[in-house]
């Protein structure tokens, strides 16, 4: 490179002052060619391609590899489709799902309904746990969501689940 190219808009005194310095700096580029490492020597040889391109091709065959977010979204989508299909086909599935949602809203594990751990009557449990009823004032006064969800079903098990409010495990052990 001709260092004069650098001085298009520089005054002459600056040019005179820094030219020797820039020529000295330019000598940094005049060193020997570094001996290629084994990997680079192999790549410089003919008919040898970089493994990097193979890696990128393999990556393109598995487009979701290395993208956990996309993989998670796809998994959630597949689950959602499966659940939707099951809900459309099976009324029992819908009923069970409603029970689970009801249990969650009431703060009661759903499996306690189905496993028959309903020995404590609603009024008893409310009476023994006044603190809890004050924590959830709407629970003791409002009708069960199960009733409103299935008003005309007449299903005995559903009805018993709706009327019984089992005691949480800690309270049950205290009783």
């Amino acid at each position: 490179m001709n260092v004069d190219d650098l001085f298009s808009d520089i005054d002459e005194s600056t040019v005179d002052a820094v030219t020797p310095l820039l020529l000295e700096l330019r000598r940094l580029a005049d060193g020997p060619v570094p001996t290629p490492s084994a990997e680079l020597a192999a790549l410089l040889a003919k008919n040898v391609t970089s493994l990097e391109s193979r890696r990128s091709r393999r990556q393109s065959r598995h487009p979701f590899r290395g993208h956990p977010t996309i993989t998670a979204l796809v998994a959630v989508g597949v689950l959602a489709v499966g659940v939707g299909t099951a809900a459309a086909v099976s009324p029992e599935f819908r009923s069970g799902t409603t029970d689970v949602i009801t249990g969650v809203l009431n703060g009661t594990p759903a499996n306690q309904h189905s496993s028959g751990h309903t020995g404590q009557s609603g009024p008893d449990s409310q009476g023994n746990s006044g603190g809890n009823s004050s924590d959830a004032p709407g629970r003791s006064h409002s009708p069960s969501p199960t009733h409103s969800a299935h008003p005309g079903k007449g299903n005995g098990s559903t009805h018993s689940r709706a009327t019984n409010h089992p005691t949480p495990p800690a309270e049950a052990s205290a009783n």
């Binding site: 940094l28 060193g31 060619v33 570094p34 410089l44 040889a45 003919k46 008919n47």
Partner: peptide, 18 residues
Amino acid sequence: GPTFEEIYRKLAPAVVGY
């Protein structure tokens, strides 16, 4: 092949200096 080797031989010293 040789083209890249030529590029390497031509430019590598300056890259080392840089």
